[in-house]
Computed example of a mutant assay.
Amino acid sequence: MFTINVARECGCFKRSPYENNMQFDNKDDALIQAKAMEKHMNEKFCGKHGFVTEETGDTFTIHVGEKQHASAGGCCGGGHCS
């Protein structure tokens, strides 16, 4: 059995139709579902968090962290750098 585990359930995840610790009979199905969940969560959830999938043995863990913001090339965006 292969498992998709969400390391920390944020509020958006709890309100979503997804379930934690979903189980699959084969690796391909689990990987496809984990990557689809990761993509959906990054694109459709509130944007406060970023999600990334990590494979460890028979488990695909979706880690939740602070969303990485695009770099402004060292500029804070305050308008005084130019």
Rank of each mutant, 00 (worst) to 15 (best):
I4H: 06
C46R: 05
A36K: 14
E38S: 07
L31P: 03
K44F: 07
M37P: 01
A34T: 02
V64M: 08
M41E: 01
A7D: 11
Q68N: 12
E66Q: 13
I4K: 02
R8D: 11
A34W: 02
A36N: 11
C76Y: 08
F24N: 04
L31Q: 13
M37R: 01
E55H: 05
H80F: 13
G11P: 14
F24R: 04
Q68H: 13
G57C: 06
D58A: 15
N21S: 11
F13M: 06
A70S: 13
V6S: 00
C75T: 08
G47V: 07
E9S: 14
C10P: 03
G78P: 00
G74F: 06
Q23Y: 00
H69T: 12
H69L: 15
Q23I: 10
A7K: 10
C46Y: 05
K67C: 13
T3P: 00
E55C: 10
N21L: 12
Q68F: 12
C46T: 04
C12H: 02
H63C: 10
G74H: 05
K67N: 11
F60D: 03
V6C: 01
A72Y: 05
G50N: 08
E54K: 15
Q23T: 14
M37E: 04
F45I: 09
A30Q: 05
G74Q: 03
C46W: 04
K27V: 08
E9I: 10
N5A: 11
C76V: 12
C10R: 06
Y18W: 14
M22E: 10
C81F: 03
A70H: 12
G11W: 01
G11F: 07
C81W: 07
C10M: 01
M22P: 01
D28M: 11
N42R: 03
E43H: 04
R8G: 00
G79D: 00
K48F: 11
V6H: 03
N42I: 00
G47W: 07
G50R: 04
S16R: 02
M37C: 06
I32P: 01
G79E: 03
I4D: 05
C12T: 06
L31D: 06
H80Q: 10
M41I: 00
F60N: 02
T53E: 12
H80M: 14
Q68L: 15
E55I: 06
K48A: 15
Q68M: 09
C46P: 05
N20D: 13
K27A: 10
G77T: 08
K14E: 06
E55F: 04
D25P: 11
T3N: 09
A34H: 02
N26F: 05
H69M: 15
K27G: 00
M41D: 03
